[in-house]
């Protein structure tokens, strides 16, 4: 079992060590130009600094959907990265084709935010040569159990802590809004939220050089379910630290939950974990 923790660019500049990074098993680093976390991503050239500072196994997050023009960066960096001792969390099948060319499919972890929700998809991908998977966040409790029960010769993981990403657009909504409202002066993008008129939730938003994102209003941390999943063979527990202050002992909370210890839950949500199957309604 491994606890994965998403590194933020600030962690590299800071002189104070982030205890979450010391406590986790694997550091996940978003790679500049190739991930959906461009704001906290690192340039290829500084990846070694993290390795040297924390001396941990490192996985690279390269989960941005790639347009043809984005392949310039991917074609440049992926061949360099694949020759090194990294694993990769990817969602675009561009990387599958390229990793296959490099005979390196064993380094690839398929990580789709929405498309991987049943064991049949996993079997299909296994037959193509992949054997590591992060289940999409929209999975329900029984869905996780079903996948774990049907798991054969592969490693399964989940996002277990963080704000789930609900929406990703190529339309840069924040920039467009600010272009129309030149009088508005924001304090960067810190604590920016959207609120739907008739609801009380404040959804976190973010925009990077490529995309605009909406995240949930609450941290997803299904503390009561994690031990169940671990006992049934879940291998990767991924903490997405975006928007969360590093003073929160995220890795410690996850470890406690994995050990079956009770964790205060009022600030957290179980996202869709307990949801019954939902189809369209008239």
């Amino acid at each position: 079992m491994k606890i994965l923790y998403l590194f933020k660019e600030d962690d590299l500049r800071s002189k104070i060590r982030n205890p979450n990074l010391d406590a986790c098993d694997v550091i996940v680093i978003a790679v500049k130009y190739l991930s959906t976390r461009d704001d906290i991503a690192l340039q290829y050239e500084v990846l070694d600094k993290v390795k040297n500072k924390y001396n941990k196994e490192i996985y690279l997050l390269i989960d941005r959907p790639l347009e043809e023009k984005d392949k310039i960066a991917a074609n440049l960096y992926f061949p360099l990265l694949i020759k090194q001792n990294y694993h990769f969390l990817f969602s675009d099948f561009y990387y599958f084709i390229k990793a296959k060319e490099y005979n390196a499919l064993e380094k690839m972890i398929y990580y789709s935010p929405t498309l991987l929700l049943n064991s049949y998809e996993i079997e299909t991908l296994k037959q193509l040569g992949l054997n590591k998977f992060i289940i999409s966040k929209d999975c329900e409790y029984n869905g996780y159990l079903n996948i774990l029960e049907n798991r054969k010769n592969c490693q399964i993981g989940m996002m277990c802590f963080g704000y789930p990403q609900l929406y990703m657009s190529k339309r840069k909504m924040l920039s467009l809004f600010l272009d129309e409202h030149r009088d508005i002066k924001l304090n960067g993008q810190k604590e920016l939220t959207l609120k739907e008129s008739s609801r009380a939730q404040y959804f976190k938003i973010h925009e990077d050089n490529y995309l605009f994102y909406i995240f949930s209003d609450k941290i997803f941390f299904p503390s009561q379910a994690l031990k169940d999943f671990l006992d049934r063979g879940m291998e990767y527990f991924f903490i997405d630290s975006s928007f969360i202050n590093e003073n929160m002992p995220m890795v410690e909370l996850v470890r406690k939950a994995l050990n079956g210890e009770s964790v205060q839950e009022e600030n957290f949500s179980s996202y869709l974990l307990n949801q019954e199957i939902v189809y369209g309604q008239d």
Binding site: P113, T114, P164, Q165, S197
Partner: peptide
């Protein structure tokens, strides 16, 4: 997109999109 699923339990990827992107939102900081 999981907005509709999260906000009103209607899963767009299973045929239930409630078109949450067409609702009225306001920006807060």
């Amino acid at each position: 997109c999981s907005l509709s699923n999260y906000m009103v339990s209607r899963d767009a990827n299973r045929g239930g999109c409630a078109h949450s992107c067409r609702w009225e939102y306001h920006l807060y900081q």
